[in-house]
């Protein structure tokens, strides 16, 4: 666009930012509160940070969340990238119908995906001896992550010059060699982007986990949900503050590192 936005326009955007950050500010502020009230300030304290590191229940659900998010994002990234390549070489009609199925978990409400997988697992229990737990949780997360990776990698494949692959083959590369040396470096930004989206989706998911984890595995979201029925311990505020600050630091580092590249 040509003209810069007006002061009034910028003020409106700033107000939206205030709206987005108000609860986050409240959460962070009350992680340093001396009492366990979430509306009355009774002085600065690091009490909840200390107690957090002694709380097995919260730490365990945090570890479950990290384990499932990292594993699911890694598996979904590998599977998603490979299948995006496979889909790219398919006949158009096949690709269209497979991408329609790929979109089902994306367009469906989380609760529908969650109860559908819950029904599958519960029905399978009649034939195979297993319990809902970390395994089913992981399967569910991989399943809803793969579509994001595919959607992130596919546009990069369209941008790839097909002649490059042919040239590599002509110069004696095997098909796998050409994929590794020519295609992968080109589509890598899409793969990385897909991995980050997958990891974010897994970390933030509550609804699908809630229906697929059974009673033996609990993610952080599920712990928080269970707590909202009674009282949320400010330890959770402390943990979220630490997570939030880590992500913020990570983004700042990435942005500083990318700036020279972007300005070239």
């Amino acid at each position: 666009m040509i003209s810069k936005p007006s002061v009034r326009g910028r003020l409106c955007t700033a107000l939206i930012m205030v709206f987005l950050y108000a609860p986050i500010f409240v959460l962070i502020a009350f992680s340093f509160n001396a009492s366990n009230s979430r509306a009355v300030w009774s002085g600065f304290s690091l009490r909840w940070y200390r107690e957090l590191f002694g709380d097995r229940y919260i730490l365990n659900s945090f570890y479950t969340t990290i384990a499932v998010s990292v594993t699911a994002a890694a598996a979904a990234t590998a599977a998603g990238a490979a299948s995006a390549i496979g889909l790219h070489y398919m006949r158009r009609s096949w690709r269209t119908s497979l991408l329609f199925i790929n979109n089902i978990p994306l367009i469906n409400a989380d609760i529908v995906t969650g109860v559908a997988m819950c029904l599958l697992f519960v029905s399978l229990k009649a034939f195979i001896d297993f319990e809902l737990g970390f395994g089913t949780l992981l399967i569910a997360h991989i399943t809803f992550n793969i579509p994001y990776v595919i959607l992130s990698v596919t546009p990069k494949l369209y941008g790839l010059d097909a002649n490059m692959m042919d040239a590599a083959r002509d110069l004696g590369c095997t098909f796998f060699g050409a994929i590794r040396r020519v295609m992968l470096p080109e589509i890598m930004p899409g793969i990385v982007n897909g991995a980050i989206i997958a990891f974010t989706m897994s970390i933030d998911d509550f609804v699908i986990s809630y229906f697929t984890a059974g009673s033996r595995s609990e993610t952080l979201s599920m712990t928080i949900y269970a707590m909202t029925r009674k009282r949320i311990s400010p330890e959770i505020n402390a943990l979220s503050t630490l997570l939030f600050i880590s992500v913020l630091a990570l983004l700042v580092v990435i942005n500083i590192r990318q700036k020279p590249a972007a300005e070239q």
């Binding site: 987005l20 609860p23 959460l27 933030d204 952080l220 979201s221 928080i224 909202t228 949320i232 979220s240």
Partner: peptide, 12 residues
């Protein structure tokens, strides 16, 4: 960035 703070917690 707010999406990295658990959504249940933000709603809470």
């Amino acid at each position: 960035l707010p999406m990295w703070m658990n959504f249940l917690l933000r709603t809470f």
